[in-house]
């Protein structure tokens, strides 16, 4: 990185750096809820479902263009890149939200939630490979996503990410206490007259929306890491929910910044670097927790 002019670096990779930092700031807060609700494994399964959705979109693209003439017309007259992104996000959302609702329903029926989520992950992984295999373009694209190559984010993708994650951050800031209550003690929430079903779906939409948009821009590998690792590190240190959210966000930001530095310094793929830096925070948090206990 030392030989590379900073302004050129920023010009080439500025969008990707901003995307990684923004995701590091917001995605761990979404993961913090998943982890506290005992659904941390969703953090691995949902991005995989979204990736399967994207691969599915590529697999049926030819059919879609042939039969959905209104879309083809729109693409021919519009900016193809701008239309391709919502198309892929649409399929990512369909798979992600569909899987979420299915998993939420099976967990309510008490048939072994962890087993169902693990099975969903296995099925989604297999579908991703099969769907990608059906389209050469999709295979290259999905392979890149899974490798965590997030260095090619364009301005439009960054705009979408800023809007989506900005909305998620605002919604979580406003409704964090209600979401915490319905998740932590649904019986009290019900006694207080809150509509549990509506809040559950609201939570699913926030998680599903975040995953669908992020998987298309920053990819599933980075998403896995940011959903699970920073909140896991933060939880061992936090003494309050406010602290938990702030520490999760801070840990995510450190993971992104550290991952960017390692990636550029050693010329490695950004995604895996970011995840491994996030993983390093776990022993750091464990040591800090021990020190905190000794001081108390």
């Amino acid at each position: 990185m030392g030989d590379f002019p900073l302004d050129l670096l920023w010009e080439l990779f500025g969008n990707s750096i901003l995307a990684a930092l923004l995701a590091g700031l917001v995605v761990p807060i979404v993961g913090a809820y998943l982890l506290a609700r005992g659904t941390g494994f969703y953090g691995v399964t949902l991005p995989q479902l979204a990736a399967a959705g994207i691969a599915f979109g590529f697999a049926i693209l030819a059919w879609w263009q042939e039969n959905m003439t209104w879309l083809v017309d729109a693409i021919e007259h519009g900016d193809e890149a701008h239309l391709a992104l919502p198309y892929h996000i649409l399929w990512a959302s369909v798979f992600c939200l569909g899987g979420l609702i299915l998993m939420a329903r099976t967990s309510k029926s008490g048939k072994g939630e962890a087993g169902h989520v693990a099975a969903t992950f296995a099925i989604a992984s297999a579908l991703t490979i099969l769907f990608a295999h059906m389209s050469p373009m999709g295979e290259v694209f999905v392979h890149g996503l899974l490798r965590g190559e997030i260095l090619a984010i364009d301005g439009h993708e960054l705009e979408i990410l800023v809007i989506a994650l900005g909305a998620v951050a605002v919604l979580l800031a406003l409704f964090r206490r209600s979401l915490t209550l319905v998740s932590f003690d649904p019986e009290l929430a019900k006694v207080q007259g809150m509509r549990l079903g509506s809040w559950e779906y609201f939570h699913l939409v926030i998680v599903g929306g975040t995953v669908s948009v992020c998987v298309m821009t920053i990819g599933p590998t980075v998403l896995f890491g940011l959903l699970v690792l920073p909140p896991l590190a933060a939880r061992s240190l936090a003494g309050s929910m406010t602290g938990y959210f702030l520490l999760s966000s801070l840990a995510g930001l450190i993971s992104s910044a550290g991952g960017i530095w390692v990636s550029f310094e050693y010329d490695l793929p950004l995604g895996p670097c970011l995840v491994l830096v996030a993983a390093l925070l776990l022993p750091v948090a464990a040591i800090a927790k021990r020190a905190k206990r000794k001081l108390a």
Partner: peptide, 8 residues
């Protein structure tokens, strides 16, 4: 109540 929530 789950102890997983770091509520004060």
């Amino acid at each position: 109540l789950s102890p997983e929530w770091p509520l004060s």
